[in-house]
């Protein structure tokens, strides 16, 4: 078999290269890979640790400091609207250890009201809605940024 020397050398070289590659690649497999399935189990933990920005509970955290407005809202027509829908992200207002860090951003524009109350064909008719342009014409005002909240208190929109 002397004439096959070059083939043996080739085979040896091939085995050496392939086994080296396999061994090196095994070193790079992440620790928790395959713990639960064909993925990195640590990623579950990483995803859990992402901090929340949007508020967690509906009213509980607000009522601690803002008793009046929260209580008003809870019994108004807007009881199901979470505070965060008009007030900016809570993390900009309160720090993690419940200290006020900045003024709560609030959306006072008519555009935010129009999201729900602009008259649309597709919108359920039980929801109070107006054609904003017509409504303002009826009230004799013009379209300004915070025109809605001049008459309607968002925390208690309809006087009862």
């Amino acid at each position: 078999m002397r004439y096959a020397k070059h083939i043996f050398r080739l085979a040896l070289l091939l085995i050496f290269v392939i086994s080296t590659i396999i061994i090196v690649l095994r070193l790079f497999v992440p620790d928790s890979f395959g713990k639960y399935g064909n993925y990195r189990a640590d990623n579950l933990k990483e995803q859990m640790e992402i901090p929340m920005i949007w508020q967690g509970t509906r009213n509980d955290s607000c009522i601690v400091c803002h008793k009046q407005n929260t209580n008003k809202k809870i019994y108004s027509k807007h009881k199901n609207v979470p505070c965060m829908n008009c007030h900016g992200p809570i993390t900009e207002h309160v720090s993690r250890d419940n200290k006020k860090i900045a003024v709560m951003p609030a959306l006072k524009s008519w555009k935010n009201c129009a999201r729900c109350h602009q008259k649309l064909v597709a919108r359920a008719h039980v929801l109070p809605q107006v054609d904003i342009v017509d409504h303002l014409k009826d009230q004799g005002t013009s379209l300004e940024e915070n025109v809605c909240i001049q008459c309607h208190n968002p925390h208690s929109p309809k006087p009862e």
Partner: peptide, 19 residues
């Protein structure tokens, strides 16, 4: 490139051809 083997005998070439 030749892996250090200079064998070009008939048997080697036959083997090559088969491979």
């Amino acid at each position: 490139l030749a892996l250090g083997v200079y064998n070009t005998s008939k048997e080697a070439l036959d083997l090559d051809r088969k491979l």
